[in-house]
Design a protein around this nucleic acid. Structure first.
Length: 655
RNA sequence: GCUGACGUAGCUCAACUUGGCUAGAGCGGCUGAUUUGUAAUCAGCAGGUUGUGGGUUCGAGUCCCACCGUCAGCUCCA
C-alpha cells in the first residue's frame, strides 16, 4: 500500500505522506495564500484546511469571494454553526436539528420550548457577534460511532441522524468554542471569518420535513464576505417586493381575491381578464397550427366518472366535496382535472391507428381543494385554469409528440423572455405499469430532450405513480421556484377507460396517453408574467396599449376621433380627458405602466400628428404622423416585441 | 393542515411604553374653481359598527377566547 500521495494545488504538485492535512499542503505549495485560504476545491467537493488527504488529489485554493459558490458554502455553513452556538448560549437546552447552507443563505432548526420572536432574533444576532469576535477555530475530529453516541447522548436529533450514517462512512464532528455538532463539514478555519450576516426570519418546520413529526423552530439567515454584497442582497429583497404580483395586481387593477367569495378563488378584473384573453388566443392559435383540436367539457361530473378514473381513490383529498342533487341517485363533483372528460371523448367511438395521434386541447378551469396554508396569490389557487391537452398516440409516436411539446414550451417561454429549467422525473418506488412500459417511456422522454440538446435536471424516482414526466420550472420575484409547463406520460388512464385503437393488424391496441400544459395554469403563468415584467407588459400583452391625452377641452373631439380610429384598427386605447393638467395625467399613465401615452394639442390636431411618449424611452416626446405611429404599433404587436422600440423616431424633417 | 405574526376608510399607513373625550393623515373618490404641452393645480365635501362573534372592564382599535382571512415558513403541488 502506498504511503505517499501526489497532490496538485493550483498547478504545482508535491509528494506528501498519506494523511497530510490540506493546511500543510497549502503551506508548502502556496505559502503566499496560506493566510487567505478558506478551503480547497477538489472537483465538485469543497474541503476545509483540516481535512487529511488519503489519496491523490487535484486541488484549487478557495478564498473569500461573494461570487464563488464554494466559498459561500463554507461561509454559510459556518454561519449556521455560529447561529447554533449563539442559540445554545441563550437556550442551553435547545435541541438541535439540521443547519445547512441553502441557495441564498442558511438555516438551522431548533427544538425550543417556545417559538422565536423578532426580539429573540435580535438577541441571537448580538450573541452571534460575540461568537464571531471570540474567533473560535472550527475544529474537525473524526470519531467512532460509539464515541459519537456518547458525545450526543443528550441530542436526540443528532442521535437519530447518527444511526442513519452507513456503516463504514467517516463520522466527523466540528467544534467551535462551546458548540459541538455532528457534521460532515466543511467549515471555515475560524468563526471570526463570518463577518457580514443577518438573520431574516423564523418559522416552524417539521423535523425531517415530516408533518407527522414534531415541529422545530427554524431560523433563516444569510451571510456574505463583504458588507456591500450583504447590503446589495437585502436591497434586492426589498426591490423584489415591489414586483410582487399581489401588490401589482391591486395597483394595476388586474385581479382580486374576495374574502366574501372564498380563499384561493380569483376574480379577474377587466385588465387582468384581457391578459388572460390574450394568452388564451395566443396559445390556442399555436395549438391549432400544431394539429391540436379544441374541445369543451363540463366542469361537473358524476362521481362515477371520478371513480372510474381513480381520482376518488388517489386524489380525493384534493377534490372539493361531492354535492347531492335533488332527484339524482349519484353525487356530483367539480372536476380537479380534465383528463377523465377527454378520455370519454376518445372512447366515444372506435379509433384506428390512422387517426393517431389525437390531440385534444381545452383551456378550462378545474377546482382543487388546496390546503389553506399553501394558497399564495395567483401562484397557488383553488380554481385554476389550465391550458390542458391530452394526446392519444401509439407508443412509437411518444417521442415525436414530446419533441413537439418541448418545441412549443421553448417557443412560448422565449416569446415571453422567461428563463426556465427542465427536469425529467423517472419511475418512483411505488408505481404501476410494467418495467417495459417504464423503460420505453423514460427513453422516449430522455431521447426527446437529447434530440433538442436541452439541458435538464434528473429527478430520479420523482415521477408520478402513473407515469414519468418532464416539468418546467420558473422563479418568482423573490426567488421561489414554481412549476409551470408539465408533460406527463400516463399508463393508468387508458387502462382504466379501456381505450383502444385498431392497429394495422386489425387487432385492438392500447394507446399511450400524454397529459400536458404549456403555461401550466393561466393563474400561475400570469402571476409569473406580472413579476417578470414588473407590471410593464410588452405592447402586444398590455391590457391598455395607448392612452390619449387631449391638452385642453378644445382637443377632446380630436382625441376621441383618434381613439375611435385606433380602436377600429384593433388597438386597446383609453382616452384620459379628465380635468387635470397634462403633467398629472402623464404621471398617472406612467404609474399604470401604459406603453404609449399620446398627447393631442393644437399642433397635433391641426397637423394630423401625435406626440408620442413611449414607456421607458429616453426621449420624452416624439412627434410623428398618426399613420406612422399606427404602422409602428402594428409591427410591434405582430412581432410580440419585448423591448422598447428603438426605431421609434420622428420622420426626417420633423418640425 | 401545522407553527408564528398580522387584520383600522377604496389603497398605503397613524392613534404613545401602560385600555380613557367625537379613531387621524396622504393618495384615491365626489363637487367647485382653474383650461392646463410631458411624473402630482388649488379649495371644499363625503368616506369607518377598527375582519366576525363572544368575553373582561365604569370604559376596548388596544386585554382574553373562538372563528374567518392574509403573510412567512413547513408539508403538498399547476
Amino acid at each position: 500500500m502506498n504511503t505517499s500521495i501526489r497532490v496538485t494545488l493550483d498547478g504545482s504538485s508535491a509528494e506528501v505522506p498519506v494523511g497530510t492535512a490540506v493546511r500543510e499542503v497549502l503551506e508548502r505549495l502556496r505559502p503566499d495564500l496560506a493566510g487567505q485560504a478558506l478551503g480547497v476545491r477538489a472537483g465538485e467537493e469543497v474541503l476545509d484546511l483540516q481535512r487529511r488527504l488519503t489519496q491523490d488529489a487535484k486541488l484549487e485554493v478557495v478564498t473569500a469571494a461573494d461570487g464563488d459558490p464554494g466559498a459561500l458554502y463554507l461561509l454559510r455553513h459556518s454561519a449556521a454553526h455560529v447561529l447554533a452556538t449563539a442559540v445554545r448560549e441563550l437556550w442551553p437546552n435547545a435541541g438541535i436539528g439540521f443547519g445547512p447552507p441553502i441557495e441564498d443563505g442558511f438555516y438551522y432548526d431548533f427544538d425550543v420550548p417556545r417559538p422565536f420572536t423578532p426580539e429573540d432574533l435580535e438577541a441571537i444576532e448580538a450573541k452571534m457577534r460575540e461568537v464571531v469576535e471570540a474567533d473560535h477555530p472550527f475544529e474537525r475530529r473524526e470519531v467512532s460511532r460509539g464515541e459519537a453516541r456518547a458525545l450526543f447522548a443528550d441530542d436526540p436529533y443528532k442521535l437519530e441522524r447518527l444511526e442513519e450514517i452507513p456503516e463504514g462512512d467517516v463520522i466527523s464532528v466540528y467544534r467551535d468554542g462551546p458548540f459541538l455538532d455532528l457534521c460532515r463539514g466543511p467549515h471555515l478555519p475560524r468563526t471570526g471569518l463570518v463577518q457580514h450576516f443577518k438573520l431574516l426570519s423564523a418559522a416552524g418546520a417539521y423535523w425531517r420535513g415530516d408533518e407527522r413529526r414534531l415541529m422545530l423552530q427554524r431560523i433563516y439567515g444569510t451571510a456574505f464576505f463583504s458588507r456591500q454584497s450583504l447590503e446589495r442582497y437585502l436591497h434586492r429583497l426589498e426591490e423584489a417586493k415591489r414586483r410582487d404580483h399581489r401588490m401589482l395586481g391591486k395597483q394595476l387593477d388586474l385581479f382580486s381575491i374576495q374574502e366574501d367569495g372564498g380563499p384561493g378563488l380569483i376574480y379577474w378584473h377587466p385588465k387582468g381578464a384581457m391578459l388572460q384573453f390574450l394568452l388564451r388566443r395566443f396559445i390556442e392559435d399555436e395549438l391549432l397550427k400544431r394539429g391540436y383540436e379544441l374541445v369543451y367539457t363540463p366542469h361537473l361530473a358524476s362521481e362515477a366518472l371520478f371513480q372510474r378514473s381513480g381520482h376518488l381513490q388517489a386524489y380525493a383529498e384534493l377534490m372539493f366535496p361531492g354535492m347531492e342533487l335533488e332527484g339524482e341517485v349519484r353525487g356530483y363533483r367539480v372536476k380537479p382535472m380534465n383528463c377523465p372528460m377527454h378520455m370519454l371523448i376518445y372512447a366515444s367511438q372506435q379509433r384506428s391507428y390512422r387517426d393517431l395521434p389525437k390531440r385534444y386541447a381545452e383551456v378550462a378551469s378545474v377546482y382543487r381543494f388546496e390546503r389553506s396554508g399553501t394558497l399564495h396569490g395567483l401562484l397557488r389557487v383553488r380554481s385554476l385554469t389550465m391550458d390542458d391537452a391530452h394526446i392519444f398516440c401509439t407508443p412509437e409516436q411518444i417521442e415525436d409528440e414530446v419533441l413537439g411539446m418541448l418545441d412549443l414550451v421553448d417557443h412560448v417561454m422565449t416569446t415571453f423572455g422567461f428563463e426556465y429549467r427542465l427536469a425529467l422525473s423517472t419511475r418512483p418506488a411505488k408505481r404501476i405499469g410494467s418495467e417495459d412500459l417504464w423503460d420505453a417511456a423514460e427513453t422516449a422522454l430522455r431521447r426527446a430532450l437529447e434530440r433538442r440538446t436541452l439541458a435538464y435536471a434528473l429527478d430520479e424516482g420523482g415521477g408520478a405513480f402513473y407515469g414519468a414526466k418532464i416539468d418546467c420550472k420558473f422563479h418568482d420575484a423573490i426567488g421561489r421556484e414554481w412549476q409551470g409547463a408539465t408533460i406527463q406520460l400516463d399508463f393508468v388512464l387508458p387502462e382504466r377507460f379501456g381505450l383502444a385503437y385498431i392497429g394495422p393488424d386489425n387487432a385492438p391496441h392500447r394507446p399511450a396517453m400524454i397529459h400536458r400544459a404549456i403555461f401550466g395554469t393561466l393563474e400561475r403563468f400570469i402571476g409569473g408574467l406580472i413579476e417578470h415584467f414588473a407590471g410593464a407588459f410588452p405592447v402586444w400583452l398590455a391590457p391598455v396599449q395607448v392612452r390619449l391625452l387631449p391638452v385642453k377641452e378644445g382637443h377632446r373631439a380630436a382625441a376621441a376621433d383618434l381613439a375611435a380610429r385606433l380602436r377600429a384598427a384593433g388597438f386597446r386605447v383609453e382616452l384620459d380627458d379628465r380635468n387635470e393638467t397634462v403633467s398629472y395625467r402623464v404621471r398617472d399613465g406612467e404609474v399604470l405602466k401604459i406603453p404609449y401615452i399620446l398627447v393631442i394639442g393644437e399642433r397635433e390636431a391641426s397637423a394630423g400628428t401625435v406626440a408620442v411618449r413611449r414607456r421607458g424611452a429616453e426621449e420624452k416626446q416624439i412627434v410623428m404622423p398618426v399613420e406612422a405611429f399606427m404602422v409602428q404599433l402594428r409591427r410591434e404587436v405582430a412581432e410580440r416585441s419585448r423591448d422598447p422600440v428603438q426605431s421609434l423616431t420622428a420622420p426626417a424633417g420633423r418640425a
